[in-house]
Design a protein around this nucleic acid. Structure first.
Length: 420
DNA sequence: TCTGGGGTCCTAGGACCC
DNA sequence: TCTGGGGTCCTAGGACCC
């Protein structure tokens, strides 16, 4: 069986773990730049605030004292996530961390009748040791464990754990699950299915497989099978990532090339750091620029450009210079840019890199590796204290708005540096 | 005024080959 | 007038996830 563990309202719960006065109150957490709502407490959900709502649309509620708001504090969330995952790994024979707040425990080898008890104990332990409330859904496939998890969250009676382990329970659960709640059915697919008369997951599985394949392809068939207890979603392979992207929206529009050079350098430097952390190197460096698509009064421009490296690289200097080359290639003055990003692809293991004639010679590469190593040691907290000359100097000048951020409760030395 | 960020996989269509 | 057939590889874009 799979046990899907999902942290309840994760970012809000992290804030509450260190600010207990937020318990019971409507709370939302905002995206970067305080742009839009990315997490809601049950109370703010009940007020009708939707995921993704732009903050300016609910700001009046904050002004009226009816809603509490926090900027996102990813340093804190990442740290609490690691603590939760570590507790899960003590119980699960195999653990697949699926996202910052979610993990599949593969419980093969554990007796089915022991599962609910194990999971209830786990919930208590996680709550006591991290302050984070979690729910657990148990079933034979990942997609069904997602369904079970919804029920565990929704109905108090389950005390945090819902099990789907018989055909009757499966049928009942599917009949009570709206089609757009099914994992793998997105906001585009759901209306199509509803138009075909499919309202619930049960309606869906009652269609013949050929019907599903014609309309939804192999992905649809996978979901259709999983909902009936046939495992189709593979075990996560612990593979290196195939692409790495660092991008941000800007608090204010940027038109100036020099300003973009600083931001893009930062993104590229961050990509290089992520590559080194995984022990990989990238053969291609790409950048993209976006103007603000919501500003219909302004000219729009969404250019992309890529640069192929002669030899895959992961040093800040090489990734940054490639990214800047791409930037200068597509940059046009006269546009108001709202967002930019760097994407590195064609990723290989760094120890598999073969020297070729036109790459850096051995000495230069060795020097670059040493510089990178020093940067990684200093930049351990995730803050770019040490950068190359093209990167923006100064620690807090990353141009991201965080008006409502709480303290860095679990990583206090970073707090000290921020105060300096 | 103000609208997130980081991934994966699949598919259709074009380029190219014989 | 009439203009092959089959394969691979790559890329851009769409759809989905959190």
């Amino acid at each position: 069986m799979y046990a899907l563990v999902d942290c309840n309202n994760f970012f809000v719960s992290c804030e509450r773990a260190f600010q207990p006065e937020l318990e019971g109150r409507p709370v939302v957490v905002l995206s970067n730049n305080d742009g839009c709502v990315v997490a809601r407490s049950n109370e703010s959900k009940a007020m009708g605030i939707k995921m993704g709502t732009p903050f300016f649309k609910v700001k009046y509620l904050v002004d009226q004292g009816r809603l509490v708001v926090r900027s996102s504090n990813y340093t804190l969330y990442g740290d609490l996530s690691a603590r939760v995952m570590s507790l899960l790994s003590e119980v699960a024979p195999k653990l697949e961390v699926y996202s910052i707040d979610e993990a599949f425990m593969n419980m093969d080898g554990v007796r089915d009748e022991d599962l609910p008890g194990i999971c209830r104990d786990l919930i208590k332990r996680i709550r006591r040791w991290t302050g984070i409330p979690v729910s657990i859904g148990i079933a034979s496939t990942k997609t069904l464990s997602k369904v079970a998890n919804h029920f565990a969250k929704k109905y108090k009676g389950y005390r945090g754990v819902c099990v789907i382990d018989t055909d009757e329970k499966m049928r009942k659960a599917l009949s009570l699950t709206p089609i757009d709640d099914v994992w793998g059915v997105g906001w585009r697919g759901a209306p199509k299915l509803e138009a075909a008369g499919i309202k619930t997951a049960l309606d869906f599985v009652q269609r013949p497989v050929s019907w599903v394949r014609d309309r939804m392809g192999v992905i649809g068939v996978r979901t259709w099978s999983e909902l009936q207890g046939i495992r189709m979603v593979e075990e996560e392979k612990i593979e290196k990532r195939k692409s790495i992207c660092t991008s941000r929206s800007f608090a204010n529009n940027i038109s100036d090339l020099d300003e973009l050079v600083l931001r893009v350098s930062d993104f590229a430097g961050k990509c290089a750091e992520k590559l080194r952390k995984e022990g990989t190197a990238a053969g291609t460096v790409g950048i993209f620029l976006y103007t603000n698509r919501f500003r219909e009064d302004l000219d729009q421009y969404y250019p992309t450009a890529t640069v192929n490296l002669d030899v895959p690289a992961n040093s800040a200097s090489e990734i940054i210079s490639a990214a800047l080359k791409a930037l200068r290639y597509v940059y046009k003055p006269g546009y108001e840019y709202k967002k930019a990003g760097v994407v590195v692809t064609d990723i290989v293991d760094s120890d598999s890199i073969q020297q070729v004639l036109f790459g850096l010679d051995g000495q230069a590469r060795e020097r670059d590796d040493k510089i990178s190593e020093v940067m990684d040691k200093v930049n351990t907290s995730g803050e770019n204290l040490l950068r190359l000359g093209t990167q923006r100097p100064g620690h807090y000048a990353d141009g991201i708005r965080r008006e409502f951020r709480s303290g860095l409760y679990t990583t206090s030395w970073a707090d000290l540096i921020e105060v300096r």
